[in-house]
Structures are given as C-alpha cells and as structure tokens.
Design a protein around this nucleic acid. Structure first.
Length: 222
DNA sequence: GCGACAG
DNA sequence: ATCTTGTCGC
C-alpha cells in the first residue's frame, strides 16, 4: 500500500507537535462509505521491559466479520509515551504492517482517538492521512468531557474538548462502559458511530480491534 | 497555577 | 500498555 507524507517525521516533542499542526489541515471530515467490503483493525502490544512490541492488522469481511487478511510484525520503539503524541510511538511499526498487507481495506479502525485529540490530530487522523483511507478512532478512555450515555446499546452523548464536539461516548453493549468514537478521516461522526456499532455485535470493543489485539499479543509470546 | 492525560 | 485474585455467567 502506498503511503503519503512519510517525510514528515520528528525527532523531538516540539517537532512532533509541529508535524501534527501541519498535517491536521489534510484531514477530510465528512462523507460516508457506500459499501465497505473489508475493514481493518490496527493494534500494538508491548512488553514491559526492553521496549519490544508487536504490531498487528486484521482485515475482516465487513459483512460476516470473518478474517480475510492479516499482517503481523515485531519491532521496538524509541519514542516515549506522551499523551497527545501517541502516534509517534506506534506509527513506525503500524506503517510497516500496512505496507505488508496484501489487500487495501475499505475502512480502518484504530485503537485510539481521531479528532478527539488536543490538536484534533490523533492517531486515527494520522493513519487516515498517510493511507488516504476512511478511518475511525475507537478509544477505551477519553481525553475530553462527556455526560454518561443511557444504559442501552446504541445510546450516546457528545464528547467535548473545550467548546468543540470532537466525538461521541457510545454504549456498544447494554450496561457496559462506553467507548469513545471520533472521526479519523474521510467520514462523518454519525457514520463512524454507526459503523462502530455494526463492528461490535457482541463485545464492548469492535471485532477489528479484538482480532488485532489477539494477533499482536500472540506475536509477542511466540 | 494545578491536575488530568489515547496506549 | 502491562501486572493480577476472585467472581460471575454462558
């Protein structure tokens, strides 16, 4: 898969924030996906010591949610974990995994935020701009403020940072903690939320994320 | 100013 | 992210 703007790579925290400010203008907000045939989940697993990591991508049939492709690799990280600069920690390995994918998915689902980010350019936006593919951010915790949504699957409330509505707190199953959905690239928030619900028929997290998580953990072990 | 803070 | 006991439920 062909990727764009790979020359935009920082060495320091200041440079990293500058890259985000520069690339944020390339995010396309809005739109729908006519008929997604395949959906890819991206995730990275870490080993507490030695900075070893495994990146995994699982591509599922959007209709049956059966896996049709995968890409797994192990590596290491040098960029420290800094809230807001999360992308620069996971992106190098995710990029390699994307390039080794046999197929080009119709949609990407990232384990983290898109627009629900301090500079409105979270990992899901970054991956979306690099690939120019529609991309959704689905995170397990929030960086913004929200009121608890209703108790039923499908209930949601707006997620805000400052005055901006940057995403949704979405209940994907009855009586479970909500997930935090935001636009990454090339779709609108309503579509992102609808797709997230579709991809989460049984558990709190989307099947794409769960599959990728399993693959990444297995790769670290074996 | 202080605390909180995706994974 | 990862470390973990017991507990509840299919």
């Amino acid at each position: 898969m062909r990727l764009h703007h790979l020359h935009e790579w920082p060495m320091t925290v200041d440079e990293a924030e500058a890259v985000q400010e520069r690339l944020r203008g390339l995010v396309k907000v809005g739109g729908t996906i006519p008929r997604p045939r395949t959906v890819a989940g991206l995730d990275v697993a870490y080993e507490e010591d030695s900075g070893r990591l495994a990146a995994a991508i699982s591509v599922l049939d959007a209709e049956t949610l059966d896996q049709v492709d995968e890409s797994i690799l192990t590596g290491s990280t040098d960029f420290p974990y800094v809230t807001g600069l999360f992308a620069f920690r996971e992106l190098p390995s995710l990029i390699r995994a994307l390039q080794e994918l046999r197929t080009r998915p119709d949609l990407l689902v990232v384990d983290g935020h898109g627009l629900a980010h301090p500079r409105r350019f979270g990992l899901a936006c970054h991956v979306g701009v690099l690939t120019d593919l529609p991309c959704i951010g689905v995170a397990k915790t929030s960086l913004g403020r929200y009121e608890p949504p209703g108790p039923a699957r499908g209930d949601w409330t707006p997620l805000r940072i400052g005055e901006d509505v940057v995403g949704r707190a979405l209940r994907t199953q009855d009586e479970v903690k909500p997930v935090f959905v935001s636009v990454g690239h090339k779709l609108d928030l309503e579509v992102a939320a609808r797709l997230t619900l579709w991809l989460s028929p049984r558990y709190r997290l989307p099947e794409t994320t769960r599959h990728a998580d399993h693959l990444a953990r297995a790769a670290l072990a074996g």
